[in-house]
């Protein structure tokens, strides 16, 4: 399968301090790949390197099968969309005027503006001056800007950090829709629920190193303790091991009509991260 991003033994140092140390991963075409880690773990540095805003110290970084430095060409930049913490907007201009500029730079019909604003629930603020928008609304406008040209590869650095749950949900739905239409997404986040909901594969980043990489289901299975939690009608809670004896016990509770609920004991991504690194994602 063709890889949209391929990173091999990549190191990024700032002076004597290394921010990313021997990072290895690839992102397949059409997947949503999550880079999960707490603040300061190197996520933003990774996004900046992948979008050629920052040069790596050693190793290999390829985007669309060629060296990342080629991303500086106009033809390649048209293929990517970027939303980072340093994506600014023109405060004195309206939402529409901001987006109109980028439609022209990306050679996109301005009719697309309404379409994307509708998706992120901002159409009613089209003529509002950006300085009058809330932080979350500004974040949605910068996301719209990154989506205007329907990029093949979208880089998102904490895309919903300033959003309320409703808008977060709406953005997630838009991102899924975009992904279903073929856009590959590289998502850097510390929000484990966001990662779990959106990502097909996840890399856990800690102190500049990938400490685990797999799909969320495999990760939960791998780091779960193979037990099942039962809640009985009399209110008691029982933990049962996933083996032959456990299966017989569960069958017995069901037969006797004692079982009220049953849940596999899978850890959350946050719990897995703590297991791996000894620190939380926040």
């Amino acid at each position: 399968m063709k890889h949209e991003i391929e990173v091999r033994q990549m190191v990024k140092s700032f002076g004597k301090k290394s921010a990313l140390n021997g990072v290895d991963f690839h992102v397949q075409k059409g997947e949503i790949f999550g880079f999960l880690g707490p603040s300061g773990s190197g996520k933003t540095t990774m996004v900046k390197i992948l979008t050629s805003q920052l040069q790596h110290t050693s190793g290999s970084v390829q985007v669309f099968g060629t060296d990342v430095s080629k991303l500086r060409d106009s033809s390649q930049l048209k293929r990517i969309g970027i939303l980072t913490d340093n994506s600014g907007l023109y405060d004195r201009l309206t939402v529409y005027e901001n987006l109109e500029l980028f439609c022209k730079l990306y050679d996109v019909d301005v009719k697309r503006i309404d379409e994307v604003l509708e998706e992120v629930n901002l159409i009613q603020d089209k003529k509002t001056v950006v300085s009058k928008l809330s932080k979350g609304m500004k974040q949605r406008v910068t996301l719209v800007r990154a989506l205007l040209h329907k990029p093949e590869l979208l880089f998102l650095d904490e895309p919903t950090s300033a959003l309320d749950p409703t808008n977060k949900q709406q953005i997630h739905a838009s991102l899924r829709k975009l992904n279903e239409s073929g856009t590959t997404i590289f998502l850097s986040t510390h929000d484990m629920q966001e990662a779990e909901y959106l990502c097909q594969r996840l890399a856990f980043l800690d102190h500049g190193k990938i400490v685990e990489l797999d799909n969320p289901h495999n990760l939960r299975s791998k780091y779960g303790d193979s037990t099942i939690n039962l809640v009985l009608r009399n209110g008691s809670r029982i933990q049962i091991k996933q083996n032959e004896n456990g299966a017989q016990s569960i069958a017995q509770y069901i037969t006797n009509g004692e079982l009220m609920s049953i849940h596999s004991n899978e850890p959350t991504l946050g719990e897995i991260f703590i297991q791996l690194t000894g620190r939380s994602l926040q």
Partner: peptide, 10 residues
């Protein structure tokens, strides 16, 4: 931070 957005455009 709008210059960066321009520089990362085509």
């Amino acid at each position: 931070n709008t210059l960066r957005a321009l520089l990362l455009s085509p």
